[in-house]
Amino acid sequence: MSIWEYANPKKFMETSAMALPWAAGLSAALLGAGLFWGYFLTPDAAKFGSTVKIIYLHVPSAMMAISAWMMMLVASLIWLIRRHHVSALAAKAAAPIGLTFTLIGLVTGAIWGQPMWGTWWAWDPRLTSFLILTLFYFGYIALWQAIEDPDTAADLTAVLCIVGSVFAFLSRYAVLFWNQGLHQGASLSLDKQENVSDVYWFPLLVCIAGFVLLFVTLVLLRTRTEIRARRMAALLSRERLA
């Protein structure tokens, strides 16, 4: 059996119905555990005080903001190449979720930045890149909403997603060139663990896993809704023909 079988709406509905409770439950458990661990069971940092604990929201949502766009890019490519409707609908479903993660990342960043840098906002490259990512999400979602025919909308948004990815990537480097910023370097990477000590790192990993599963849960949920909506439209148009 091939992986493309899941691209059949019916098969997808069956499988996702089984996977959904697990993803949701596991996500809730991980997030509950990770956030509790992070917020209540870790010491205040010497340099940052208790403000550092916002990383348990800030870092995972920022990571998921980018991952969601990547997922949309992959789904768009699958739609353009193989024309599986579920793929297009999954990309559509992921966009508002990705936008929400981006906004959470920006807002928590501002809340953290105020005590740390003494300002809510600075045109730091990373902040700017996220703001630009927000704009790309807005455009993508607006285009989906503007076009009536679902297949045309899927085609156009997929093309926009691919072209947008290239330009978002370019913007990232343009912004880096434009302003070398004050953001601390990568707070999480495997060879740079010394940036964040283990005490903070493990609960952060749990939170990230929780956020990933939260994203999966929400995308499955919204894709199912989109499939049902398409099914309803198809049934209605069939009724009109009969």
Binding site: L135, F136, G139, G164, S171, F177
Partner: peptide, 23 residues
Amino acid sequence: GLKRGGLLLGLLVLPLYIPTLIF
């Protein structure tokens, strides 16, 4: 294909203009 594409066009195009503008 859109009747009122003007505003949407700005929303789509301006983010794509960012790298050109910066450089």
